[in-house]
């Protein structure tokens, strides 16, 4: 178990361009175990590019992303061998997609979706795998009677919760989330956020959450990074950034939110 005073993820000088288009520029931050960092910004801010670069889905043009593996050493994720990186993505890391269909196998049952990562790391006892899947379905408040149903028969909110269960079953230490509540009804969002808040706290997960919704950021993240046109314009304690915004763009963002 790594020392909680040592950062889990260290990002330095990260930049990515799409030809003449800027994705993100010179982004740097550190993430400690158990900490949630929110990345907010509007479309085109570069937040999704940033998320993909730090989760090994998109190779950056510049900069370094280092992750502290279970061995305790800080390793450059783009210098790792592909098997090592893929293993990391299957065990230590989790990625929750905005559209649950991107993060699920739609043609296999809910139970198989949750059990897959276990089978991928060598689980070979059907009863145990099914038991673990059952546990996780109840944790994410999905009726366990639906363990053999296909995800296509689930509502959007249920699919999203299934995606979360599928990701967390191997006990990852770091979760990346891309607009996890995007496209869901408000009441469904509330339930999902409550679940996520609970799991993050209970499991001591570190997370990077990309969202355009300031309320989601305030609820889930300890620290906040505000992105605009590919750059981080402000970062700090979440409530401080939202209650005492300094940068003109942050002030605009905060004042634009409608209060019901």
């Amino acid at each position: 178990m790594s020392d909680n005073h040592e950062p889990l993820l260290v990002v330095d000088g990260l930049s990515k361009r799409y030809g003449a288009q800027l994705g993100c520029r010179n982004v740097g931050f550190s993430l400690w175990p158990g900490e949630v960092v929110g990345v907010v910004g509007e479309s085109g801010s570069g937040k999704t590019t940033l998320l993909n670069c730090i989760s090994a889905r998109l190779t950056p043009d510049d900069g370094v992303v280092r992750y502290r593996t279970r061995l305790g050493t800080l390793s450059d994720i783009y210098q790792m061998s592909e098997p090592e990186r893929r293993m990391l993505m299957r065990t230590d890391w989790a990625f929750v997609h905005q559209n649950p269909r991107d993060g699920l196998r739609m043609k296999v049952s809910a139970g198989a979706n949750v059990g897959e990562r276990l089978m991928a790391v060598g689980a070979r006892h059907y009863g145990n795998i099914r038991g673990a899947a059952d546990d996780w379905l109840s944790k994410v408040e999905i009726d366990t009677g639906r363990i053999d149903d296909l995800p296509a028969t689930f509502s959007g909110g249920m699919q999203q919760r299934l995606q979360i269960a599928r990701n967390l079953v191997t006990g990852p230490r770091l979760v990346f989330m891309d607009e996890p509540t995007g496209g869901l009804d408000v009441s469904v969002q509330a339930r999902l956020l409550d679940l996520m808040r609970g799991l993050v706290g209970e499991l001591g997960l570190a997370a990077v959450i990309v969202t355009h919704d300031l309320a989601v950021a305030r609820l889930l993240s300890h620290r906040l990074m505000v992105m605009w046109r590919g750059e981080v314009v402000e970062q700090g304690l979440t409530d401080q950034v939202l209650d005492d915004p300094q940068h003109p763009y942050t002030q605009l963002l905060v004042s634009s939110v409608l209060q019901p």
């Binding site: 304690l237 409530d239 401080q240 209650d243 005492d244 300094q246």
Partner: peptide, 9 residues
């Protein structure tokens, strides 16, 4: 008060 709490810079 908010400054003491760290809520305001």
């Amino acid at each position: 008060m908010r400054m003491i709490f760290g809520n305001y810079l």
